[in-house]
């Protein structure tokens, strides 16, 4: 409490009773606001967690129990559901999981690499049309990816690549936002002096980039990687448009397909719910592991000049 009274006391010879009154008043007000905000935060948490709890409970129920038993009373069919999901059309679900990992992992890696090259070039080299290129990229940041999906489909159809892994990978390799971030980060974290020093020592531009710039840009590139990874993992529209073969589907489109069986076949609710639950796990793990980088990097990129 001394920390609270000190600044007040330092204002001058304030009467003690008044101070006490002030103090109790302040504490009261503090308590009140903290109660309200706690309640609001709790409600917010409940709002976010309730659907998750529902998925958790529902995934333990058999198809017959799903719509009849009490919503939040768990049952014992989780393992059966996972087995059933695994058996669905010869383990198709796990193939979707691997597909998603491939799309998100490879896509995000390539995207981070392209962003690093492009961002570094835009930040550190001067060439004709540099500003124009950057402006076009900035405009690209403003265009939602969904809008580009159809033109991309037509372009890929011209070269016969629709309905292949490439159809989903290629369009996601270039991320205007990733290049923008990389440029800002390269500008802020790679001093020109280091590049000059490298040149003086006779290193080639590629070597300077790989050996000097990339390590210095690494935290920023991790951010780009994570952004793209989560973006691709959750992407629905692009694979939905590009792919016809459900062996190539990522989780999002695959689960949607399980619900969308046509009116003559029952929707596979239990499978979808269990599948949705399992599909969260890799993202949760990724976030727990990489959370540190994520936070630090956003802050770091924002404050450095």
């Amino acid at each position: 409490m001394s920390t609270v009274t000190k600044p007040l006391g330092s204002r001058g010879s304030m009467a003690r009773p008044q101070l006490a009154k002030n103090r109790s008043g302040r504490i009261g007000a503090n308590d009140k606001t903290s109660y309200t905000s706690t309640i609001i935060l709790l409600l917010g948490a409940l709002y976010c967690l309730l659907p998750l709890a529902w998925v958790l409970m529902a995934s333990t129920k058999s198809g017959g129990d799903l719509f009849t038993s009490n919503t939040f009373v768990p049952s014992r069919h989780l393992f059966d559901n996972i087995v059933e999901l695994t058996q669905y059309r010869g383990g198709l679900y796990w193939r979707w999981m691997l597909n998603t990992a491939l799309y998100a992992g490879v896509g995000a890696f390539l995207s981070a690499a392209v962003s690093a090259f492009a961002g570094f070039a835009l930040a550190k080299y001067s060439f004709k049309g540099k500003q124009a290129t950057f402006m076009v990229l900035l405009a690209g940041v403003l265009v939602p990816g969904v809008i580009l999906a159809i033109p991309q489909y037509f372009l890929l159809a011209q070269v016969g690549l629709t309905n292949t892994y490439w159809a989903v990978l290629l369009p996601q390799i270039i991320s205007p936002y990733g290049i923008y971030l990389a440029r800002i980060y390269a500008g802020a974290s790679v001093p020109n002096e280091i590049i000059e020093a490298g040149r003086t020592d006779g290193a080639s531009d590629l070597r300077i980039f790989l050996r000097l710039a990339v390590p210095m840009m690494a935290p920023g590139l991790v951010t780009v990687f994570l952004f793209q990874f989560v973006g691709i993992w959750n992407n629905f529209m692009l694979p939905y448009i590009m792919l016809g073969d459900d062996r190539l589907y990522p989780i999002t489109v695959g689960l949607n397909g399980l619900l969308n069986q046509g009116s003559t076949v029952p929707a596979l609710y239990s499978l979808v719910i269990t599948g949705a639950l399992l599909s969260i796990i890799p993202l949760v793990v990724l976030f727990l592991v990489l959370q540190r980088f994520w936070k630090v990097d956003l802050g770091a990129g924002a404050v450095k000049s």
Partner: peptide
């Protein structure tokens, strides 16, 4: 055999591929 989504999405996909000239 390629298993697609049922009904409308499959038709839309086919029409898109027809328009695109391949696929």
């Amino acid at each position: 055999y390629v298993k697609t989504d049922a009904g409308d999405p499959a038709v839309t996909k086919l029409l898109t591929a027809i328009k695109a000239g391949s696929g």
